[in-house]
């Protein structure tokens, strides 16, 4: 979805260049094959339900609770990733330390690890008798098999996005710009808030959107640690699988189409926000 948005905005820029017809044709054909046709199949399948059946499929309390958890936890996880991804990117760009290359490579690990492996590992470590969970248990903090576990898994898989989008933009910011701000009397915080943050904000937003989109669709790593307690720790993708296992294909696509619409609206808002930021920076930013 993020990709689709990226392509459509690029289209406008390409319009003055030669090869417009070819690239546009390719883009449309590719998007149709890869994105639009599968998505419209969901819509088509959902339409076989009729309004009453559709509404009852997507509005049961259990399904609504799963939406709430999925989108709530995804937004929160993306938010957490913005904060810590920013710190990580900052450290990787600004400082030199032994093992930096290793840390840099570690950031990408959540991309490469099969999600089920990540889920099982997290569940084991954070369960009541796991190496971390056993210390949290006496404090009254239960992570595994609760919504907190879902959040943890989503934070884990979303980590690379913010780091990887912010890192190059931060590296691109010249040192002397910060020195100029300090020389004009700005405190460190003012320099960060007024000079650095506006520079990297679009990248942060992109990272947020990607981490969010990934988290909404995530299945493998979450189900192992979530415990899948109805009304408490079931995520929306799990509801879809559950319906599929009951051969309720139309019901599954109904839940999926609602997810799709909500995700699409949220990503549209993020994109609009980004466009607004870009305009505020002035043409050619």
């Amino acid at each position: 979805m993020v990709r689709r948005e990226g392509n459509s905005s690029r289209l406008k820029r390409f319009s003055v260049l030669p090869g417009f017809a070819v690239t546009l044709g390719y883009t449309l054909a590719y998007l149709s094959l890869v994105v639009l046709i599968p998505l419209s199949a969901i819509g088509a399948k959902t339409l076989t339900l009729g309004w009453e059946a559709f509404w009852s499929a997507v509005s049961t309390p259990r399904v609504v609770a799963s939406y709430r958890l999925s989108f709530g936890a995804s937004l929160l996880a993306a938010g957490i990733n913005v904060v810590f991804g920013l710190v990580l990117a900052w450290v990787l760009v600004r400082y030199r330390f032994p093992g930096k290359g290793l840390v840099d490579a570690l950031v990408d690990l959540p991309f490469a690890l099969p999600t089920a492996v990540a889920g099982i590992a997290l569940a084991t470590i954070y369960s009541a008798n796991g190496p971390i969970g056993e210390f949290l248990q006496p404090l009254g903090i239960e992570v595994a098999y609760t919504p907190k576990g879902v959040l943890l898994a989503l934070v884990f898989i979303g980590l690379p996005f913010v780091v990887r989008t912010v890192q190059p933009v931060l590296a691109d910011l010249e040192r002397d710009v910060e020195e100029a701000a300090a020389g004009l009397g700005a405190s460190r915080w003012q320099t960060f808030r007024r000079v650095i943050l506006p520079h990297i904000a679009p990248a942060i937003l992109t990272g947020f959107a990607m981490a969010f989109a990934r988290a909404v669709g995530e299945y493998g790593s979450v189900i192992f640690i979530a415990g899948n307690v109805p009304m408490v720790s079931e995520i929306a993708p799990l509801m879809i699988i559950t319906k599929l296992e009951q051969y309720d294909y139309a019901g599954a696509t109904a839940v999926a189409s609602v997810m799709l619409v909500i995700s699409f609206i949220l990503l549209l808002i993020i994109n609009a926000l980004q466009g607004w930021m870009q305009r505020r920076r002035g043409a050619g930013g």
């Binding site: 010249e174 710009v177 100029a180 020389g183 000079v195 520079h199 505020r280 920076r281 930013g285």
Partner: peptide, 22 residues
Amino acid sequence: RHVRERQVGFVFQHYALFRHMS
């Protein structure tokens, strides 16, 4: 004294303007 407190104006070779500001 920190650069903030020295009351010096510094002009950089590559301008170092804030790109996102008018």
